[in-house]
Simulated scan of single mutants.
Amino acid sequence: MNFDLCIGVDYSGAKTPVTRSKTLQVYASHRGEEPSRVSSPSSSDKSSRNWCRREIACWLADQVNQGNRIIAGIDHGFSFPISYFERYGLESWPQFLADFVEYWPTDQDHVHVSEVRGHNNSFESKRTGTNKEFRLTERWSSSAKSVFQFDVQGSVAMSTHAGIPWLHQLKSELADRIHFWPFDGWDPPEDKSVIAEIYPSIFKNRYPRLDRTCDQQDAYSVAKWLSETSRSGFLNRYFNPPLNDKERTCAELEGWILGIS
């Protein structure tokens, strides 16, 4: 399975979707070449070349709209535990996305995840969970944390609550040109781009860090691993983790971290 671009995105849920941050990092490998850092395309001023979340979503859409077949691994949760779906009567991932952006409008320019959490129950009590709720894919990992576990080192809760609305936007904008794995099926068609949840800790120690920052190393290692496994023909194995029928049905709502098998 070959792609024009293999992209690693190290995400951050800090501040607003239009705030530039050095913790947002993007690396891309073009047709098997060594991954290189991709800077924000919006400015030639080096001091403002860090990304913001809105810009990353637009850039990913641009790559697909330009005719590139991409695979992008993004470092945040794409969905919530099955208990959340049952609690709020949600029956599909698209329904989950639409419902989430109603209660967590973290794609709006001046909305911060922490502000939504602090609205004296006007938001959080309607759509939330506890840090003891885990997805199946997290239980298969030795260190992945709950998507509801805020305010601890290594937590993805902020990134997840900031990033999910952009998945909704990309799905709406790109329609049938993009395959969100595994929600759209476990075997991506050969003619579609792919976006998948990733956990850089699985890969980052495989490759020398050199002079990259921690965030850069995370994005680099994802792009490198995606490039290597897709070109070697092994990526299809990771697209089909060894789940039984019940587990697979659950993961089709909760999502799965690509690379955990």
Rank of each mutant, 00 (worst) to 15 (best):
I7L: 04
G8P: 07
G8S: 08
Y11H: 13
Y11C: 10
S12V: 02
T16L: 11
V18S: 04
A28Y: 02
A28N: 01
G32P: 05
E33S: 15
S36V: 15
S42E: 13
S43T: 15
K46C: 03
R49F: 07
R49D: 12
R49M: 15
E55S: 13
D62A: 09
N65G: 00
N68Q: 14
I71D: 03
A72H: 06
F78Y: 10
F78W: 06
S83T: 12
F85D: 06
Y88T: 02
G89H: 03
W93K: 01
P94R: 04
T106S: 04
T106I: 03
D107R: 02
V111E: 07
V113R: 13
S114T: 05
G118K: 12
G118L: 10
N121Q: 11
S122A: 12
S122H: 15
K126H: 13
G129M: 07
R139S: 14
W140Q: 12
D151N: 15
S155D: 00
V156Q: 09
A157D: 00
M158C: 10
A162P: 04
I164S: 02
K171I: 03
K171T: 00
S172L: 11
F183T: 01
G185D: 05
D187Y: 03
P188G: 04
K192Y: 01
I195C: 01
S201F: 00
S201L: 10
R206C: 09
Y207H: 10
P208W: 06
R209C: 09
D215R: 02
A219E: 10
Y220E: 03
V222Y: 00
W225S: 03
W225V: 02
W225G: 00
L226I: 07
E228D: 14
R231I: 07
N236D: 12
L243D: 03
L243C: 07
K246A: 13
T249G: 13
E252F: 01
G255T: 11
I257P: 00
L258P: 00
I260H: 06
